[in-house]
């Protein structure tokens, strides 16, 4: 089963786990949908109101940014790790 690695700020929404195993392989969009079906309060933190992945979230499949693969169609196989990585930035 693929594992989704949860960043610290989102752990309170997944019972404080740092990773969640997903009983689903296939496109990353399906894997994230399965994760959200288990933990619905993640929805608003991962997707905007129009159903697109939020811009300040980076998603990696086995350390490769999905933006440089097939985006949300990037295939996730069993034993692969999916990392959700927040963008951290700011300024004056």
């Amino acid at each position: 089963m693929p594992k989704v690695l949860i960043p610290t700020p989102l752990r309170p929404y997944v019972d404080n786990q740092d990773e969640v195993s997903i009983d689903k392989e296939g496109p990353i969009s399906d894997v994230l949908a399965s994760l959200i079906s288990q933990y619905p309060s993640l929805q608003n933190h991962l997707y905007d109101g129009e159903g697109s992945l939020r811009g300040f979230i980076n998603v990696y499949v086995n350390d490769e940014d999905i933006r440089y693969q097939d985006g949300e169609k990037t295939i996730v196989n069993a034993n692969q790790d999916v990392s959700i990585v927040p963008s951290i930035a700011g300024g004056i």
Binding site: P9, L10, R11, P12, F56, P86, G90, G91, I92
Partner: peptide, 10 residues
């Protein structure tokens, strides 16, 4: 800008 990039629980 800080707010735009802010995450909960941090």
């Amino acid at each position: 800008t800080d707010l735009k990039f802010a995450w909960p629980n941090f």
